[in-house]
Design a protein around this nucleic acid. Structure first.
Lengths: 348, 348
DNA sequence: CTGAAAGCGCTAACAT
DNA sequence: ATGTTAGCGCTTTCAG
């Protein structure tokens, strides 16, 4: 085990008092340049690191950010959280924070975990993902005055944004996808989405609907809603492509549904569709640009996860570093909305 | 913020001394049943949680396990770590530990992070993934006497297993896959692997080679090695299937290569192969059972990641809970080797 | 079986 | 600008 180097060791070697060392570390400007340098040299020499536990006892700050790691529901979209987590850990480290993981099966058990964590490890803040209507997690944290950021905007109508959030503009993404298909010559463009109400799902549908409307195309009957599984996407696509809607392209709310749609589009039963318009093969666009999309050549919308994670850290750090009064005053949380980008592959 | 409940509050309400409360929490058998119950009731009532920072200062134990989160290199195999992480967080929580994340670009920077972490947050142990020949991380930790477990066996020849490890038996997996293909009637079974030396890769190749040998089939020229990208897998499969080797089935070291192989098998240029043996379409089996495998209908070997994670926690906890002397005596670390299972889908 | 005292390493006040 | 004091919440001696 590494020999424990304390602030006293540094002080002794540098020939100053403990407090001066602490000052150099926490309030550098209050120490004379010369002394500061000497202390810093000794710190480097001895490989001194401030002990978090001790600092935490004194300051009440743990420099820990807690986040839930999901059970990776359907697998395909799971990789999004994975990449987000990596970005978060990286950004947090740059700001002097570490990421603490926890699991929870539902909102209730997640709130219970908040209590546990706050009582034991005292994380300075939380990053919430997968926000939804009537999210009890946000209200609880708000209630207790625990700092947090959500990755995902507050969806409820009562969402006066009482907390900072970061999100990716889903509507902008599907709008870009729809425009891409229009440019390629498609006019009958369908949408495979999730049942309403779904914050994320409705938002993504909106971008598609709006863009078609702007192009003067009626989208009645061009949309389908289903749960998020490959098989469901396949069925829905079959239904839509097989109908007399004349659909030649599909924008999908997720890569899961898009992969299903791709299967459907390539199925023998629908082959006549391709033959009917050999110049315009059925196009499919997914959302999230998961590894699956890359593997099957699916055009998809890529979320700027690294940037999103960095924004979360920045926002959280701003609250954490703010004064008590600033915290309480609930200063405008300045949400961050990022744009996804279209990654074009064979499928469209 | 939650009102801070300390051990003193519990003591006061329960009408005992602080020490008694501490005893109830840490050495229950030393307290009279009656008193114990009363204290525990108050603990529940007040929602008391022992403060980690304070406990850590006294005991030197943080109840933190640190693990690196990878940058998710090729995307496809990234989901393995994701699932492992979830299992680890879950198992750790059950044993009273939390998981702390960090990132590192290479072994050197990871070792630097060890120093940082140990100086600041003092994690009780580490879980190392992606072990390889001459792994400097393991030697460093061994050197410093820091407890750790690796997910992945020690591969070097000097691997006297000076530390506990958990791994999945890759050879057993590819052997099962090869047997599955033999049972289906294939005899010319190829292998797509990684260049040697690669601990994981060589192990997986070995299972295939051994099984063919046992079946009396010469596997000379039936193997190919390439880096782990879909395109590489496709090229190698093309080469192998297009040769006069008579290969009708492929066992692959990863889902990435298998997806590539699947592309190749379905490519028009190789269609004659399918026609030549309509009763025996080209079969492909991957490794890791990633979401991609599920999405494209690829038969693959699934690692018991939840169990692997649980074993890591168990092993680490055993060291951590052991006495100092037991720790130093480097008792046989009792490695754990788990078997992957074959998930059969359309591709084989 | 229960109580009292000491101190882990650090930093916010207050001296100097 | 630098040094002194006190105490965060807990557990590990040691007495009763």
């Amino acid at each position: 085990m590494a020999d424990k180097v304390t602030i006293a060791d540094v002080a002794r070697v540098a020939g100053v008092s403990r407090q001066t060392v602490s000052n150099v570390l926490n309030t550098p400007d209050v120490v004379r340049q010369e002394t500061r340098q000497r202390v810093l040299d000794v710190v480097g020499e001895l490989g001194y690191r401030v002990n978090q536990a001790a600092r935490q006892m004194r300051t009440g700050r743990s420099r820990l950010i807690a986040i839930r790691i999901d059970p990776d529901r359907d697998g395909i979209n799971g990789s999004v959280l994975d990449r987000f987590l990596h970005g978060l850990t990286d950004s947090a480290a740059r700001s002097g924070y570490r990421v603490l993981l926890y699991t929870a099966d539902d909102d209730r058990s997640e709130v219970a975990t908040f209590e546990d964590l706050l009582g034991a490890y005292e994380p300075d803040g939380f990053v919430l993902t997968g926000t939804h209507h009537q999210d009890p997690r946000a209200s609880w944290l708000l209630d207790k005055g625990v700092p947090f950021v959500t990755f995902g905007r507050p969806w409820g109508k009562e969402a006066e944004a009482r907390h900072p959030w970061v999100d990716v503009d889903g509507a902008a993404g599907t709008a870009a996808a729809t425009r891409h298909l229009l440019d390629a010559g498609h006019t009958r463009i369908g949408f495979l989405g999730w049942p309403s109400p779904s914050g994320v799902g409705d938002d993504r549908r909106e971008g598609w609907a709006r863009t078609l409307a702007e192009a003067g195309i009626d989208h009645t009957d061009l949309g389908r809603a289903t749960s998020d599984a490959v098989a469901d996407g396949e069925a829905a696509a079959h239904d839509l492509l097989g109908s007399d809607s004349g659909v030649t392209a599909l924008v999908c709310v997720s890569d899961s549904l898009a992969v299903g749609a791709l299967h459907a589009a390539r199925s023998p039963g629908l082959a006549w569709r391709v033959d009917a318009r050999p110049d315009l093969p059925i196009a499919v666009i997914g959302f999230d640009d998961t590894p699956v999309a890359k593997a099957v050549g699916l055009t998809s919308l890529s979320q700027p996860l690294k940037e999103a994670a960095a924004s979360c850290v920045t926002l959280l750090a701003r609250i954490l570093e703010g004064t008590e009064t600033a915290r309480a005053s609930a200063a405008s949380p300045a949400p961050v909305l990022l744009e996804p980008s279209l990654v074009v592959r064979q499928s469209a």
